[in-house]
Design a protein around this nucleic acid. Sequence first.
DNA 1: CGTGTTAACCAACACTTTGTTGAACAATTA
DNA 2: TAATTGTTCAACAAAGTGTTGGTTAACACG
Lengths: 206, 206
Amino acid sequence: MSRTIERKDDRRSRRSRKMLADAFVELVGERGLDGFSITDLTELANVNRGTFYGHFSDKEDLLEYCESEFLNGISELEERIAQVPVTELGTEETDSFVHSVFVEIFTFVEEHEALLTALLGPKGDISFEHRIIDTVCTTLIDKILNEQYRINRTPLVDYYVGYYSSAILGVVLMWLNNENRETPEEMATILLGIASLSLGDPIVLS
Amino acid sequence: MSRTIERKDDRRSRRSRKMLADAFVELVGERGLDGFSITDLTELANVNRGTFYGHFSDKEDLLEYCESEFLNGISELEERIAQVPVTELGTEETDSFVHSVFVEIFTFVEEHEALLTALLGPKGDISFEHRIIDTVCTTLIDKILNEQYRINRTPLVDYYVGYYSSAILGVVLMWLNNENRETPEEMATILLGIASLSLGDPIVLS
DNA sequence: CGTGTTAACCAACACTTTGTTGAACAATTA
DNA sequence: TAATTGTTCAACAAAGTGTTGGTTAACACG
């Protein structure tokens, strides 16, 4: 089970895969991962049940297909994140750069709104969240933190990256579930404001 | 479906419920929420399959039973959190108090290790995580933030609490998945150190 | 445009899981 | 002890799963 199935490159095949993936995201968002059957899925997708098994070995395989599509797209984003000079944060110039990276993040997220709302929402897949966190953490440690922290790894450093990764993802999730959603630019400003605060500083809107 | 079943108060009933709940946590941790059948569960629990349906309407009902047990326990913790004087953070006295609250949090988490590792791990239940975040956010807004922020609610305030709630939970999750786990006291020190940092400050071990 | 290829469709299959039932049994409580 | 009641066991229909073989129709390409 869960054997790898080669993805056919045929107009019919692509169409079927898209119908199935779209219906999958819709059903996960509405009913949760195990709130529907393959039969439900193929009916909504207007695709024969047998066709599903021609493309995916089971529901998990389709889930993996949807998730990896997004995770692969992150890699480009990572290169931008990696350019953030963590040791020089706080200066006006660096803040401006971080702001632009935040804009890119929220824009990227907005482009994958349907998938993320479904898979990271209350009926979604927690392993997807873990994979995203892990990816971001690894990027931070490997690319951003300077040599000293990489060699002299203390528990504090590991928890440090986990802390900020979770915090940022948390804000992203709140944003996605917001009705009157702020623009990526507004969110970048808000996030930069929060991240620049120490816990005790007063909250002001910039 | 999912009808409420009254919980019998009988030594046999209590025993069956405990066997089922323990087996449930074990199976969720190993195989994930939909990685096992009711049959698997009752076999591991050494309980007849019919007995399961005498206590719970379905798998979700048992999940809710396990989760609510933990969520109810949080309420006591909340009262301690509510005493944190957010507007006076940074002083030595306040930091000391926050530290003690952090110790309580990590101690409480450690007491529910099995449940949390299973339900918040990569095969767990994302809605449980959402419920915890929501609970913490509500507590922060309602009890900690002072009158000014409660009345003059800006998007920044909402995202602010979401940011810190997710950040702390993220650290807790990293800690739970750690092999050589730090003590609650050590973790309180680490978390306080991270939370007191602005993004640009250098990372040092206190 | 025609033709071989191949994916989609459809019906049928054995199999597993589900949720329910009724009767016999055994543990609990008072 | 006696009545209560949860557990067990066997059986059941219903639904979902993953697979198969044969037919139809869309596709890519020379």
